[in-house]
């Protein structure tokens, strides 16, 4: 399961993700992070069963946490199954099936946006989180 963790750094530079890993023993995979001088946002991947615990612990440490609901959307009427997205994706979200039709596993996506940017046919977009 993927969570988006946002935190303010005004209260000090606390290593909150490391703290949660140490306290709970749950291995957290940071897939994407953007941190500047005042705030930060990290996309983390955790085992589904530890979701509640990790969310609680992160919240205790002052971070706000929400489950990532956005994903990548493939418009099949625009896609021509060219495959330009396949190797630019760092998460191996896309592949061809036996009929050379493009397949995707949205759950692997970390919303880096590369495929959206390079799709020659503008067939990929980000679904909204609402």
């Amino acid at each position: 399961m993927k969570l988006i963790v946002t935190f303010s750094r005004k209260a000090g530079k606390k290593p909150i993700i490391a703290q949660v890993v140490r306290d709970t023993g749950i291995l957290i995979n940071v897939e994407r992070a953007m941190i500047d001088s005042s705030e930060g946002e990290a996309l983390i991947d955790i085992p589904d069963e530890s979701c509640t615990l990790v969310k609680e612990r992160l919240a205790d440490l002052g971070a706000s946490v929400r489950v990532l609901e956005a994903g990548i959307f493939l418009d099949e009427s625009e896609c021509v199954d060219c495959g330009a997205c396949i190797t630019v994706c760092p998460q191996e979200v896309f592949w061809f099936d036996d009929d050379w039709k493009l397949q995707m596993d949205e759950s692997k996506c970390v919303l880096c946006g590369r495929c959206i940017e390079i799709c020659p046919h503008r067939a990929l977009s980000q679904t909204s989180e609402s």
Binding site: V80, D81, G83, I86, T87
Partner: peptide, 13 residues
């Protein structure tokens, strides 16, 4: 090294 096409073999078929 991973390879990927830019043309569509499915449509070529």
């Amino acid at each position: 090294i991973r390879t990927s096409s830019l043309s569509s073999f499915r449509r070529a078929r």
